[in-house]
Amino acid sequence: MGIYEHVEIFAGLPVVDAGDAEATVADPGAVAWRISMEEFEAPPEEFEAAFEQLLQRTGPAGPTALVVGEWGSAYDSPFPYQLLVDNVVRLSGLRALFVGDLTGEECEISWIDQADITPVIEAFPALERLWIRGSESLELKPVRHEGLRELVFQSGGLPAEVVRAVAASDLPNLTHLELWLGVDQYGGDARADDLAPILAGRSLPALTYLGLRNAEIAEEVATAVAAAPIVARLTDLDLSLGVLGDTGAETLLAGQSLTHLRRLDLSHHFMSAEMAQRVVDELPGVEVDVSDPQQEEEWGRYTAVSE
């Protein structure tokens, strides 16, 4: 399993391929522009040229939302965040950024080569949404950012250091946080302890959606969440794509009340049919997703997205 499709809506805007010269766009600020090189191994100049072309097409404020797919040897070369930082004046309109919109057909998620994203966060104080896919070489230092509303890390293995940096960041307006924790084999070495500041509700005062997804440590996460003070503030709890089984689900139900939630997403799980039904039955009024049940294999349980 893995990621199969490019994003079609980003930041609430329809995604338009910047390479499609025939696409007619009345208002360049009302779409999310996607730049992606057709060649897996396109040289950096080709990406820079496409980026320059997009800046010219979108006018003095640049794109509102930018989605980057293949930037050229993404499996081997970090995304050139410096290019964005260098053009910060021409990107004054940028509110949403997604770097790494690559499917499993294009690049193994665990190979997508990221970099230190701290400078780009600091350079764009008006950024509201940031999505990062892939965690190879991914780094983050604790930041203060008042603009961010939505922060998403999709990975096959999110480094504990990044998790700790998010937890130590000052993001007073962040409402949506997604951490795809992944598996240890692909660098996902975070444990429940690393999530403690987030779960304790000490950081991220505005959070209403918490996604601790695609986790090999789903059972451990479930145990931690069952007693986490932050849960009382959430409307959406998303523990999907991981390896949650009956034990974790039992802990979750035995813990604090979850009936205030709008939505609980447990899809892609290893619960028995009986346990899945129990979760639904015990949370009336909560939209509970227990779709996509998995069967344990010879080698154990797999998260939805790893390699």
Partner: peptide
């Protein structure tokens, strides 16, 4: 050379 295939839903 690997030709990246289109997908619908969660399948290529």
């Amino acid at each position: 050379r690997w030709f990246p295939k289109a997908a619908l839903g969660d399948r290529v």
